[in-house]
């Protein structure tokens, strides 16, 4: 049968759900081994964080999409958590191979890393379901439906109070970690990346400015480029 936008969307959703059926809603044995290898076991903090973020996500999703869609929010979050575990495991395997270490205590106890990774997983889930597009983008098929456009990127950053600059850090590793991501998903993440690089990371409250200041004070003084260049 001919490909239609709806058929394409259904295929993407089926593919995502199919890929995640085998990934459990709990950390796998391999992931648990990484947690146990840490100097400080991150498991309890991670689970508590997930509960807090689930409440935040469900509440804000309900406000944006409507109270009758609360169950949808819970389903999206559950799928996002499966993807979060799957990608985390792939990232750690790749880091173990690259660095020849098995103790990722610092990374796995970094709340910003977990929040960014989960936000990216949820962005992928919502983009697949067509709920997150871009208000100014050219491919928002839900344009005109304010309920759906309310959860478009960077909505997730506001929900988790996450700096765009920190979300940006996980995008490339996320794409590398999952070669089964659809082309549309990769394209969506790339558009998020470009939006951050071109606009969101440069807003006044961005942590980027403090980092640039620290870099400058740390001795890495370079000639400031002229406005023309």
């Amino acid at each position: 049968p001919p490909q239609t936008p709806i058929r394409a969307a259904m295929t993407s959703i089926q593919q995502l759900r199919g890929d995640l059926i085998s990934s459990g809603d709990q950390p796998s044995t391999t992931l648990n081994t990484y947690f146990k290898n840490c100097t400080v076991d991150p498991t309890q903090n991670m689970l508590t964080r997930l509960e807090t973020l689930e409440q935040l996500f469900s509440q804000r999703f309900g406000q944006a999409v409507g109270p009758r869609c609360l169950i949808l929010g819970k389903q999206r979050f559950a799928l996002g958590v499966r993807l979060y575990y799957k990608i985390m495991e792939a990232m750690l395997k790749s880091e173990e191979k690259r660095l020849s270490v098995q103790n990722f205590s610092k990374l796995l106890n970094d709340a910003t890393f977990h929040t960014s990774l989960l936000a990216c997983a949820l962005e992928v889930v919502m983009a697949t379901y067509g709920e997150s597009s871009f208000k100014t983008g050219g491919y928002n098929h839900a344009a005109g439906d304010s309920a759906e456009t309310d959860v478009c990127f960077p909505w997730i950053l506001h929900v988790f109070n996450l700096a765009a600059f920190d979300f940006y850090k996980v995008i490339e590793s996320f794409i590398k970690a999952d070669p089964t991501l659809s082309k549309d998903t990769v394209k969506h993440l790339e558009t998020c990346e470009n939006l951050i690089m071109e606009r969101i990371a440069w807003r006044t409250d961005s942590p980027l400015f403090e980092l640039l200041k620290q870099e400058h004070e740390g001795g890495a003084v370079e000639q400031v480029e002229t406005p023309a260049s």
């Binding site: 990232m91 790749s94 880091e95 690259r98 660095l99 990722f104 610092k106 990374l107 970094d110 910003t112 890393f113 850090k169 996980v170 490339e172 590793s173 794409i175 590398k176 082309k183 549309d184 990769v186 394209k187 993440l189 790339e190």
Partner: peptide
């Protein structure tokens, strides 16, 4: 034919990006 442009060098990964090394 959409291909993501990978910008990270081979010696960079998520650990470095979150200042873990």
């Amino acid at each position: 034919n959409h291909n993501y442009h990978f910008g990270l060098e081979d010696h960079e990964g998520i650990s470095e990006l979150f200042d873990c090394d």
